[in-house]
């Protein structure tokens, strides 16, 4: 279970201070699929990254499976991310000088897996995403849709229990967007928790719950699908 307890994030670098997350309390059960919507600057991405242990809150706690993320040392938090959290980015964030196979190997390498096993697992993941014939291609040699599929394969490499997707379809055409959402639904059906930030209301409706964020606060919550399957 992923919990946010009265999480506030305030930036004091410039006057006046800016509060990007304001007393956010949220409980996300294992197997949930949540979409977060809201206008630009409402704090959607900040909330997502705070959930993933990438941004320490000014106050409040983020708890994943009973462990308070920000009470861990930074390296401990990084290790936990590597084990339990998978990120999907709008711009894919593939390492440009590595091949598709090597990009998928990165999280496996960071988790300490031996090279031969890394290659085997990365190749099988890329096969699953229909990229078996693109293993040695660099991101610049792949189409946008293929790049996002490499990023999805990389995200799945360490078999994370929580997937945090920041505008995963933001750079994609409708057909590829649909494929990506279908994939997120599939991983959700496998029991993974999915939290997705999106601008697109149609995409948002594919989630089980939708949260709207305004000025760093959750302004409303809507159940878009049956939660019977949620643990």
């Amino acid at each position: 279970m992923l919990k946010m307890e009265a999480v506030t994030k305030t930036y004091n670098h410039r006057r006046p201070a800016v509060t990007v997350l304001n007393d956010v309390t949220l409980e996300i059960h294992r197997g949930d699929f949540i979409s977060i919507v809201g206008p630009s600057g409402s704090g959607k991405s900040t909330l997502l990254l705070a959930m993933g242990g990438m941004l320490s809150p000014s106050s409040g706690r983020v708890v994943l499976d009973g462990e308070s993320l920000y009470e861990l040392a930074p390296d401990g938090r990084a290790a936990l991310r590597g084990q339990k959290i998978g990120f999907v980015f709008q711009t894919f964030n593939l390492v440009p000088y590595l091949s598709a196979l090597e990009n998928v190997q990165v999280p496996l390498f960071l988790a300490g897996m031996i090279e031969a096993d890394q290659k085997e697992r990365a190749a099988s993941l890329l096969e699953r995403f229909g990229l078996g014939d693109r293993l040695t291609h660099k991101p610049s040699e792949l189409s946008v849709g293929q790049q996002q599929r490499v990023a999805l394969a990389r995200m799945l490499a360490n078999d994370p229990s929580v997937i945090l997707a920041d505008e995963p379809t933001g750079s994609l055409d409708p057909e590829t967007s649909s494929q990506v959402i279908a994939f997120l639904e599939e991983t959700n059906r496998e029991g993974r928790t999915v939290v997705m930030v999106t601008h697109d209301p149609q995409i948002a409706r594919r989630a089980k719950r939708t949260l709207r964020l305004d000025g760093g606060r959750i302004s409303y919550e809507e159940q878009t699908r049956d939660l019977a399957s949620v643990a």
Binding site: A78, Q83, P96
Partner: peptide, 16 residues
């Protein structure tokens, strides 16, 4: 910077 941030998101610690 972005690559480093991505590596950190994927589990890289500051020592690495």
């Amino acid at each position: 910077r972005r690559e480093i941030g991505t590596l950190m998101a994927l589990g890289a610690g500051s020592r690495l």
